[in-house]
Nucleic acid binder design. Structure first.
Length: 566
RNA sequence: UGUCCGAUGGUGUAAUUGGCAACACGUCUGUCUCUGGAUCAGAAGAGUCUAGGUUCGAUUCCUAGUCGGACAACCA
């Protein structure tokens, strides 16, 4: 596994509120000055960029304070959980660059202990078996502003509860027939304290414990205690669990075990996408996208397939910070992070997406030259390569205009431009379709003394174009992506609409590009900068016959921006 | 008509814990460039939700509001 380079600057950066709490605890020698965090996913879906924030936070904190981080699967609901998800989660965390060493845990590892905890509660008269149906229970729970009513089973004798609970475990009751409830306060202003269900009957095979249990603890009865069992010092979770904290505290206190400190932070929201597991699952199941790793999705595997790097994602997590107010991060910040990373690392290559043929009239018919091109101007150690040049070339349609506006620095009648790493050419004439007005072909002359690297090649020309030799270019499938949703916040749907009504139907565009032959042997996952266009990543669908590229993110384009502003 | 949490440029996060608001993204200039990329230099943009109070002084403390979010699965 690759070493994570610490982004810590020598000058102390201000602490976020969690680091402040941790440093305060450290100062007071709490927990013997030990820091132990955990990342606790439920294996019922794929991880997304929001989880990445949490992963980076938990592992990052442990790294910063010489602590440890556990990977723990909160697998208390066998009807939704699968090994497929366990595997993908482990792959994603590892890919992001984090190592949980030998601390891979499962809440299901603690089922026996959790059962004992429940027994403790029952014996103290703090839990009871309840026969109410889900509907009855929901009715008697009241509302946030109206107190609930006690269950008729609330005062069952302890021995009876013990016997019933043991029969629940033994499989003597059907699903839903009975539950175990904590006996707290049906009038509590905190909904979670109104005698919450802590065990339910589920005759369902579990991905790890198989058929050894037919009762399963609820999340609220497993999560806090699991953290306690693992001696977690700081249980970092998202805001919605803030209201659960009184319940966790109550349970831990009544059971009489070590109490970790829970700290809540605001989950990540990204503009123009959705982040809930439920919605992502829907998009996948209803085939509105091509799968969990569709490059348009904010899933970790989607971002990976798109071409994002772990470094960029980690840096993103670092930059967005952590706080308690909910917020929406602009997608352009994520894009900034991947550009910044790839600018330093991606090899440059030339490819044309919308080809326009140019013919160099004064260039020998059969001559083929090898042009020396830098692989990455940002990194001389990346070396250079040879690019084949010939009489007929493709350039980008947008790089020629018959009647250009002011400040158009590209090719136009009578104008000169530099062909990247090659010659300066001048437009002499062009042909166009009289009906459609479409430019068919452009004829140029080239200046033999202007070849890149030649002593007299330093003439200033306004523009530089990327190109590809017609007879040497290889065809490739290029997948261009746009934001998945047309609106900034698809979750914020008005009455009668859902986020799906805002799907951008043009979020995927597939075209054929002409790429320089040096990429021929590129393998899936490899990333390039197509000069003047953007960063592209070889897709897993690629094969030796047809290369397939995903556009990770286009280059910033101040010309396009200016044009668009008009 | 409950409980809990929050409110700082367009966006996100700061403010050495009470000393007239900083950084990043974005935007806009300009420089440089064989990528209209990158780089470099610079600019605009908030007086910190409101009203009171404490104080020489409040983004920071207090009070009362306002607005936003979370909570009523045998989900996590």
């Amino acid at each position: 596994m690759e070493e994570i380079k610490s982004k810590e600057e020598p000058q102390a950066r201000s602490l976020n509120f969690i680091e402040e709490i941790i440093e305060e605890d450290l100062k007071h020698g709490k927990n013997g000055s030990r820091i132990h965090t955990r990342f606790p996913p439920e294996p019922n879906g794929y991880l997304h960029i929001g989880h990445a924030k949490s992963i980076c936070l938990n592992f990052g904190l442990a790294k910063k304070y010489q602590g440890k981080t556990n990977l723990r699967f909160d697998d208390t609901n066998p009807v939704k959980e699968e090994v497929e998800y366990v595997d993908s989660i482990k792959e994603d965390v590892r890919w992001l660059g984090f190592d949980w060493e030998d601390r891979e845990f499962y809440a299901s590892d603690y089922f026996e202990q959790l059962y004992e905890f429940a027994l403790i509660l029952i014996r103290k008269g703090k839990a009871y078996v309840c026969d109410q149906t889900a509907e009855e229970m929901s009715e008697s729970r009241g509302t946030p502003t109206r107190p609930g009513k006690d269950s008729p089973y609330r005062n069952r004798a302890i021995d009876e509860n013990l016997e019933l609970f043991s029969k629940m475990r033994a499989g003597e009751f059907a699903d839903g027939a009975k539950v175990l409830r904590a006996r707290i306060d049906m009038a509590s202003p905190i909904m979670h304290m109104r005698d919450p269900v802590i065990y339910r009957i589920l005759h369902t095979s579990h991905h790890r414990t198989r058929d050894s249990w037919c009762i399963y603890p609820m999340y609220d009865f497993a999560h806090g205690q699991s953290d306690s069992i693992e001696n977690i010092t700081h249980s970092i979770c998202t805001l919605e669990f803030e209201v659960h904290r009184p319940l966790y505290d109550w349970l831990i206190h009544e059971i009489g075990i070590y109490a970790p400190r829970q700290i809540e932070f605001a989950r990540l929201n990204l503009s123009y996408t959705v982040m809930s597991k439920r919605k992502l699952l829907e998009l996948v199941q209803e085939k509105l996208v091509r799968g969990w790793d569709d490059p348009r999705l904010p899933t970790i595997c989607g971002l990976r397939r798109r071409g994002y790097t772990p470094e960029a994602i980690r840096n993103f997590a670092d930059i967005i910070g952590v706080a308690k107010r909910d917020s929406v991060i602009d997608i352009s910040l994520l894009e900034f992070c991947i550009r910044e990373d790839l600018n330093k690392k991606a090899l440059r290559v030339m490819g044309v997406l919308n080809p326009l043929k140019i013919v160099l009239d004064n260039y020998p018919d059969d001559l083929v030259e090898e042009m020396e091109a830098a692989n990455n101007p940002e990194d001389p150690s990346a070396g250079s390569r040879k690019v084949l040049f010939s009489k007929e070339l493709y350039i980008e349609q947008e790089d020629f205009m018959e009647d250009p506006p002011a400040k158009f620095f590209r090719l136009a009648p009578g104008r000169e431009v530099r062909l990247r790493s090659a010659y300066i050419v001048k437009c002499e004439s062009f042909t166009k379709d009289p009906v459609s007005g479409k430019i068919l072909e452009v004829h140029c002359s080239y200046d033999p003394g202007s070849k890149s690297g030649m002593p007299e090649s330093n003439r200033k020309v306004k523009g530089t174009l990327h190109w590809v030799s017609v007879k040497h270019a290889i065809k490739a499938e290029i997948r261009l992506y746009d934001r998945l949703f047309r609106v900034e916040n698809p979750d914020n749907a008005e009455e009668g609409k859902t986020y799906k009504d805002f799907l951008n139907t043009d979020s995927l565009e597939i075209k054929t590009g002409y790429i320089e032959p040096s990429v021929q042997s590129a393998t899936p996952g490899q990333k390039f900068q197509f000069e003047r266009l953007g960063y592209y990543c070889v897709d897993y669908d690629s094969n030796p016959e047809t290369l397939v590229f995903n556009c990770i993110v286009p280059l910033r384009d101040s010309w396009a921006k200016k044009e668009k502003a008009k």
